[in-house]
């Protein structure tokens, strides 16, 4: 499964970059996120409740960041396990481009999904993933714009 999107955020690049690295901001924006803790400089642990079609499960997972491109972007890899519901793993590449006072955020993400959630068919998963990422970025843009104004 592949996802890619480009969004424009009314905030400077440093603010956006900082926001993407702030566990509190991410926790507030990730749909269904119950816990998000930084375990080391480049590692995070998360607990997310996810509902796809009839399957609802709590996924626990790790995310590893590669910040060598900061603040022009970063890459991340991660995996999550949802017990009987299945598992997911993948990665994303995020780039941030300055455009005046605004930032253009683009990302491409690749994910492999397995287990019961995968069985529900790619049409459900793809649709749900798109919906969730749209929700995340909508909340994220809102947070960033709010903090840029402050």
């Amino acid at each position: 499964m592949e996802l890619s999107e480009e969004i424009r955020i009314k905030a400077p690049r440093e603010v956006v970059y900082a926001g993407l690295n702030d566990p509190e901001v991410l926790k507030a924006c990730i749909p269904g996120c119950e816990e998000l803790t930084q375990t080391s400089e480049n590692e995070l642990e998360a607990k997310v409740v996810l509902k796809i079609g009839p399957v609802k499960a709590r996924f626990g997972g790790q995310v590893t960041l590669d910040r060598s491109n900061a603040p022009g972007g970063f890459t991340l890899t991660g995996e999550g396990k949802g017990g009987a519901a299945g598992f997911a793993k993948g990665g994303a590449e995020v780039t941030l481009i300055e455009d005046g006072d605004e930032t253009v955020l683009s990302y491409t993400a690749k994910a492999e999904v397995g287990g019961k959630i995968a069985q529900l068919g790619s049409r459900l998963i793809q649709g749900t993933a798109k919906k969730l990422s749209a929700k995340f970025f909508a909340s994220f843009a809102e947070e960033m714009q709010a903090s840029a104004v402050l």
Binding site: E112, V113, G114, G115, A118, Q119, L120, G121, S122
Partner: peptide, 8 residues
């Protein structure tokens, strides 16, 4: 990766 894609 061995997922059954037609499980319902």
């Amino acid at each position: 990766i061995g997922n059954v894609k037609t499980g319902t």
